[in-house]
Structures are given as C-alpha cells and as structure tokens.
Amino acid sequence: MITIKNLHASIDGKEILKGLNLEVKAGEVHAIMGPNGAGKSTLASVLAGREEYEITEGSVDFDGQDLLELSTEDRAREGLFLAFQYPIEIPGVSNINFLRTSLNEIRDYKGEEQISAKDFMALVREKSALVELDAKLASRSVNEGFSGGEKKRNEIFQMAMLNPKLSILDETDSGLDIDALRIVANGVNKLKSPENATIVITHYQRLLDYIVPDVVHVLYNGKIVKSGPKELALELEEKGYDWIKAEVDAQ
C-alpha cells in the first residue's frame, strides 16, 4: 500500500524527519507512537502534502505511484485520507455540501458519474449511523460549533463517506472521553477491510485497546526506532519512552 524510504523533511530549515522508513500493506493497521516532538504529526502532514514542509530526501510509493509527485488534492483523490488532529471549521458551508463536493471531485477524478442526491443522502444516513453522528450535525456548518468529540467523530464520518485506501488518524484520540473513544474506534474497525490500511498516530496506548494494531512503531527523533507486535504498546504504556530514548542514544 505505502512504502516510505529514507524520508527526510524539514520546516523553516529545521529537519524533523531524519530518514524514516515504513511499510504498510493492504489490510493492516499500524500504530505510530512516540514522545512529543518526535515528528508524528509532521509525518502525517508530509504524507498529506502540506506545503510548509520541504522534502529533502527519500521516496514514498503509494500503490505504485510516486506520492510526493502528486498534488495534495490528487493524493486525496487517489485514496489517502487524513483525519486531522485539529479539524478545521468552515463557517457557512454545510457538512453535507462539503462532503458532496468532495465525493464528486473524487468521482470525477476517477471518471465516475456524479452521485445522485438520493444515493448521497442514503450514504449519509448509513455512514453517520456508523459513528453515531447526530443527523443534525451533518447539515450544520463544517465543524463550526462542534464539541471536540463531535469534530473527531465527524472526521471518521468523512472517512466512512469517502472510503479511502489509506487512512491516517492523527491523534484522533486526543480530547475524547471514553465513550467517544469507543464510538470512534468502532467506526474505524467497521471500516477495516482487506483492501484498505490504517495508520494510527497516537500518544497513548488507550486507543489501541479499541483499534488493535498489527504492528506498533516507535517514532523518535525523526526516525522509526523500534517496531513490534501490539504488546509493544503495552510495554510503552508501562515503562514510558525513556528506555527507548536511552537505547537509541546509546547507539
């Protein structure tokens, strides 16, 4: 699905990613954990195509395509989805209008017909139920006046609507209470299939109780420094990151 090789990225001349390697195959869920400032959110931003970051070295293959050559919108249309850590508010634009525009742009890119209003509304009903999103939120302005939990649920709702190949969840658990966490995780689990993959970026092990990863990676100082099975997350929870830092710094 996605193969990242020796990725270096910097912002304002400061290098954040320093030779990151990662491979995620279809059907897999990978968790990326790490201390503050390790580069987790930078990785998400770089993959999504945020302009402020400069890629100085490395390659990213996304389903046989050079991801770094694609524009931000074409990455999305090719099936890369980023669930934002801080979802953006767009006053005056209804969620429905936003999603329909999005869905149709993606369909247009793929040479498919525009979705009919009827099919679209049926899809909205089906997918909003998945994340227990109040139907009223679907017709409100994008993220405007949403609570923290509603914003995150709305991200997963959009993900469900767009049905991406690769989803990157950037700290989706931050600011969620336990019920919201369960709902969001349920949504993600239900969307899992052998054809798609998920990268879960998180600070805490908590989310991984609900979304069970196939592989857990530790990102530290711009690189993946350790990978292991889901038990690694528990170990990190228990022991913190200091032992990993010590291990890396000793090398």
Binding site: A48, T72, E73, R75, A76, E89, G92, V93, F98, S102
Partner: peptide, 26 residues
C-alpha cells in the same frame, strides 16, 4: 488551513475558495 483541509478531501483549490467564500457570504 481551510484550503488545505478542502484539498485533503480532494476538493480543488478553485472549488475550495468558492466554497469558503460562499460560506462566508451565506
């Protein structure tokens, strides 16, 4: 940020601006 958010959902820049401006004037 708003434009990036739209782009990340596959919406072209022109449509994004149009959406945002129309929302602003709603």
């Amino acid at each position: 940020d708003q434009i990036f958010y739209c782009l990340q959902r596959g919406i072209s820049e022109e449509k994004a601006i149009s959406l945002i401006v129309n929302g602003y004037c709603k």
